[in-house]
Computed example of a mutant assay.
Amino acid sequence: MGRYLPIMMMALLAIYCVVEVAQAPTYAVRRMPRWLWATAIICLPLLGPLGWLILGRPNRASRSDSSIGRPKAPDDDNDFLRGL
């Protein structure tokens, strides 16, 4: 069992990273397109997942879209309340 543990851990890490790449928004992935990250994760057993976790994963800066910093509900928005 001890001999297979590193292989199982690498396989689980690769599966986790492939699922995360598939769920990441296209605009938020850094450095390379999503399809290239998925290919790298599958073809490069340890370097691909580590590269994704360190370099490609979306962070707050890459996820910045127009909804960040905006009020969550209409009654929190002063401009909306002024227009009533």
Score class of each variant (00 low, 15 high):
residue 1 M to D: 12
residue 1 M to E: 13
residue 1 M to H: 11
residue 2 G to I: 03
residue 2 G to C: 03
residue 2 G to W: 02
residue 2 G to M: 06
residue 3 R to W: 11
residue 4 Y to A: 13
residue 4 Y to T: 10
residue 4 Y to G: 13
residue 5 L to A: 15
residue 6 P to I: 03
residue 6 P to W: 00
residue 7 I to G: 04
residue 7 I to A: 13
residue 7 I to L: 15
residue 8 M to F: 06
residue 10 M to Q: 15
residue 11 A to D: 13
residue 11 A to W: 06
residue 11 A to C: 07
residue 12 L to E: 11
residue 12 L to F: 04
residue 13 L to N: 12
residue 13 L to D: 14
residue 13 L to C: 08
residue 14 A to F: 01
residue 15 I to L: 15
residue 15 I to F: 13
residue 16 Y to A: 15
residue 17 C to L: 08
residue 18 V to S: 14
residue 19 V to R: 14
residue 19 V to F: 07
residue 20 E to C: 10
residue 21 V to E: 11
residue 21 V to H: 07
residue 21 V to T: 13
residue 22 A to C: 14
residue 22 A to V: 11
residue 23 Q to Y: 10
residue 24 A to D: 11
residue 24 A to K: 04
residue 24 A to G: 06
residue 25 P to I: 01
residue 26 T to Y: 07
residue 27 Y to T: 13
residue 27 Y to P: 03
residue 27 Y to M: 12
residue 27 Y to C: 09
residue 27 Y to L: 12
residue 28 A to P: 06
residue 28 A to N: 06
residue 28 A to Y: 03
residue 29 V to C: 10
residue 29 V to S: 08
residue 30 R to E: 05
residue 30 R to Q: 14
residue 31 R to V: 10
residue 31 R to T: 13
residue 31 R to F: 02
residue 32 M to T: 07
residue 33 P to Y: 01
residue 33 P to I: 01
residue 33 P to W: 02
residue 34 R to L: 10
residue 35 W to Q: 15
residue 35 W to L: 13
residue 36 L to K: 14
residue 37 W to F: 05
residue 38 A to K: 08
residue 38 A to V: 04
residue 38 A to P: 09
residue 38 A to N: 08
residue 38 A to T: 09
residue 38 A to I: 05
residue 40 A to H: 11
residue 40 A to S: 15
residue 40 A to I: 10
residue 40 A to E: 12
residue 41 I to R: 03
residue 41 I to W: 01
residue 42 I to W: 11
residue 42 I to E: 08
residue 43 C to Q: 13
residue 43 C to F: 11
residue 44 L to R: 09
residue 45 P to G: 01
residue 46 L to M: 13
residue 46 L to S: 11
residue 46 L to D: 06
residue 47 L to N: 06
residue 47 L to T: 11
residue 48 G to S: 05
residue 48 G to M: 03
residue 48 G to F: 02
residue 50 L to R: 00
residue 50 L to E: 04
residue 51 G to Y: 00
residue 51 G to W: 05
residue 51 G to F: 01
residue 52 W to S: 01
residue 53 L to E: 08
residue 54 I to M: 12
residue 56 G to W: 02
residue 56 G to N: 02
residue 56 G to P: 07
residue 58 P to K: 02
residue 58 P to Q: 04
residue 59 N to K: 06
residue 59 N to V: 08
residue 59 N to G: 02
residue 60 R to A: 14
residue 60 R to Y: 08
residue 61 A to D: 12
residue 61 A to F: 07
residue 62 S to H: 02
residue 62 S to D: 02
residue 63 R to F: 01
residue 63 R to K: 13
residue 63 R to G: 06
residue 63 R to L: 15
residue 64 S to M: 15
residue 64 S to P: 00
residue 65 D to E: 12
residue 65 D to R: 09
residue 66 S to A: 15
residue 67 S to A: 08
residue 67 S to Y: 05
residue 68 I to Y: 11
residue 68 I to N: 09
residue 68 I to V: 14
residue 69 G to Q: 06
residue 69 G to Y: 04
residue 69 G to M: 09
residue 70 R to T: 11
residue 71 P to H: 02
residue 72 K to P: 03
residue 72 K to I: 10
residue 77 D to L: 03
residue 77 D to E: 05
residue 77 D to V: 01
residue 77 D to N: 08
residue 77 D to Y: 00
residue 77 D to I: 03
residue 77 D to Q: 04
residue 78 N to Y: 07
residue 79 D to E: 14
residue 80 F to C: 03
residue 80 F to R: 07
residue 80 F to V: 12
residue 81 L to F: 00
residue 81 L to V: 05
residue 82 R to Q: 11
residue 82 R to T: 08
residue 83 G to P: 00
